[in-house]
Design a protein around this nucleic acid. Sequence first.
DNA 1: TACGTAGATCGATGCATTTCGATGACGATG
DNA 2: CATCGTCATCGAAATGCATCGATCTACGTA
Lengths: 120, 120
Amino acid sequence: MRTLDLAPKQKRPNGEPCCEPVVYPEIEREEAERMAHAAKALGDPIRMQLVDVLRRHAGEVCVCELVPLFDLSQPTVSHHLKVLREAGIVGSERRGLWAYYYVNREALEELRGWLQPNAA
Amino acid sequence: MRTLDLAPKQKRPNGEPCCEPVVYPEIEREEAERMAHAAKALGDPIRMQLVDVLRRHAGEVCVCELVPLFDLSQPTVSHHLKVLREAGIVGSERRGLWAYYYVNREALEELRGWLQPNAA
DNA sequence: TACGTAGATCGATGCATTTCGATGACGATG
DNA sequence: CATCGTCATCGAAATGCATCGATCTACGTA
């Protein structure tokens, strides 16, 4: 655990900066960016439910079964699935006319790891 | 684990629905909404880093220490902190001129719980 | 080959979000 | 009490996002 300079605050004399800016490594900025991307994909109720449905099923679920679950047009559901796909949270496979989606458990696990109390 | 009717697909005769719509309880819609709200708050690199900094410190961190970490104006950082506050992810306390922020570990824990492999 | 179905993509629309400078609220300090 | 520092809020501008109808692609079927 890094230690910030949590020195007791006092009004700075005049024109001096209020406190030492802490150096923040770029590495963590990149990791934050990745995690934020995943979190953002989950940051929509529809997509949250899509993931919820998908992970409740061991295998794959047909899009034609997902669409009627929501009060949304087919293109909109397709859009949400695309967002999840591009975030790596779900994957898809096409078989004939139908497209089947499934959860990428590792992606959820990565975010879960980040949320862990003492994550680096 | 609920079971969807994953019957083998075949082109439906004509005008019939392609598959039985699965009933999806409202309860889970509400939970998804709560989880999505938290995820959305984390769905921004700046806020991800803010949370990261805050949770690295056992206690509270002054806003005046957070602002110089980012290439952003003070009002913008304040805005992001507000988003996190309204999502319940961080809390704040004002002492004199300074405002101190801290992580709400329980909030992160709830989202983490939801991400768990066999979450209800 | 012609048609119908499943799903993805496109373009438009309306709303939300990010960001800033300016300003306001309020405590501290002389 | 006048001034300054800290932080929050406001209003505006730019950008992003959810959503839809229309359309496109690809596959099955007659």
